[in-house]
Amino acid sequence: MKMVLAMYYAMKAAARLAMIGMAMAVLGSGSAHAAAAVPTAAGTGKVQVEVLGKGRPVLMIPGLNSSAEVWRETCRALKDVQCHLVQLPGFAGARAADPRPADFLSAMRDELLAYVQDRRLEKPAVIGHSLGGVLALQMAVKAPAAVGPLVIVDSLPFYAAIQNPQATAQSVQPMAEQMRTGMLAADAASYRAQADAALAGMTTDPARLPELQRWGRDSDRATTADAMYSLLVTDLRSEVAGIRSPTRVLGAWAAYQAFGATEASTRAIFQAQYAALPGVEIAMSAAGHHFLMWDDPQWLRGQVQTFLDSHR
């Protein structure tokens, strides 16, 4: 387990990106919104959604092992929106899917698209962080006419290519399977210690760490392992060419400044991975780490509000 995690985090550090990992994580103030509806399929091991406010529908997807709470502050700060806060099964205490889906990401993508259709949401904007960003991209790839503007927060179409741009989904499959096997086989103490340690560099606010750690401990280990495996073998670099939604990507780089990263070098990684996405806009936070909604909230909210206002 330790070797597998060390290999994965070395890959992240080498790429100077504070992205996803075994980091049990992912995750925003203003006028309050009143709750309009609460979880669909609550307690069933399916995607749950809480609806807040009135206005333009915005689907907000958290990332690996995160609670839907991660987006609540951001939601409250946005104007004229109806937030649909997504809770993915198996994360942060939500019941895991049973049976486990053959592929976590594609199963979650299909549930989210079904939710959009069932609720008759007209081209909702979709905001996704980390793993949630990949899900947002997948939704727009599979059903380009069903979703509106996309805001992708610190996420890439193919994480395995951070280290090696020549990597393919097939070539990284053995490493991804090794990592999943190691995660499932680790004893509880080792698993918890590695997960807790991995979170330290994900946010600039140490007061947030206990919550992140609690979400990780409350997450179903098999779901986390399946989600990470699915993420590592998913390559959307060419598929994003079929997306028709206006897209703004918000990136983070400051966490790896000590390793020699610059805004320009990190932006270049994002530009290379999103090269096929028509009209994509890429903006980089000057200060935030992976959890931009906590570390650089005013910047993130301004980016989101301006983008949504310009694409109605």
Rank of each mutant, 00 (worst) to 15 (best):
residue 184 L to P: 03
residue 88 L to G: 01
residue 88 L to V: 10
residue 153 V to F: 09
residue 190 S to P: 04
residue 57 P to D: 04
residue 17 L to P: 01
residue 74 T to C: 05
residue 189 A to W: 13
residue 29 S to T: 14
residue 24 M to P: 13
residue 261 A to N: 05
residue 268 A to W: 09
residue 143 A to R: 10
residue 227 A to F: 10
residue 210 P to M: 14
residue 308 L to I: 03
residue 129 H to E: 10
residue 192 R to S: 11
residue 303 Q to Y: 02
residue 35 A to T: 09
residue 177 E to I: 14
residue 132 G to P: 00
residue 141 V to L: 13
residue 91 F to Q: 09
residue 152 I to K: 03
residue 169 A to K: 08
residue 57 P to I: 09
residue 4 V to C: 11
residue 161 A to V: 01
residue 278 P to M: 08
residue 205 D to R: 15
residue 279 G to R: 04
residue 291 F to V: 14
residue 235 D to Q: 06
residue 256 Y to E: 07
residue 148 G to M: 04
residue 52 L to F: 06
residue 107 A to D: 11
residue 176 A to H: 08
residue 24 M to L: 15
residue 51 V to D: 05
residue 243 I to P: 02
residue 184 L to T: 04
residue 163 Q to S: 15
residue 131 L to C: 10
residue 173 Q to W: 13
residue 160 A to V: 05
residue 124 P to T: 10
residue 254 A to P: 00
residue 206 P to R: 12
residue 27 L to D: 12
residue 74 T to V: 11
residue 146 A to N: 07
residue 38 V to L: 12
residue 27 L to F: 15
residue 207 A to W: 05
residue 87 Q to F: 05
residue 111 E to G: 03
residue 231 L to K: 07
residue 69 E to G: 07
residue 120 R to D: 15
residue 102 A to P: 07
residue 221 R to F: 10
residue 304 V to T: 01
residue 280 V to I: 09
residue 202 M to D: 05
residue 68 A to Q: 02
residue 161 A to T: 00
residue 111 E to R: 04
residue 209 L to C: 11
residue 12 K to C: 14
residue 252 A to W: 01
residue 125 A to E: 01
residue 168 T to R: 09
residue 105 L to A: 04
residue 142 K to F: 09
residue 121 L to G: 02
residue 224 T to W: 08
residue 177 E to W: 14
residue 35 A to I: 02
residue 173 Q to R: 15
residue 14 A to E: 15
residue 114 A to Y: 11
residue 108 M to P: 00
residue 246 P to I: 02
residue 2 K to F: 10
residue 67 S to D: 13
residue 279 G to E: 01
residue 125 A to N: 01
residue 310 S to C: 06
residue 136 A to M: 06
residue 1 M to I: 14
residue 88 L to I: 11
residue 257 Q to Y: 07
residue 39 P to N: 11
residue 256 Y to L: 08
residue 38 V to W: 06
residue 306 T to F: 04
residue 248 R to K: 07
residue 154 D to G: 02
residue 157 P to A: 04
residue 286 A to T: 06
residue 3 M to C: 12
residue 177 E to T: 12
residue 175 M to A: 12
residue 295 D to E: 10
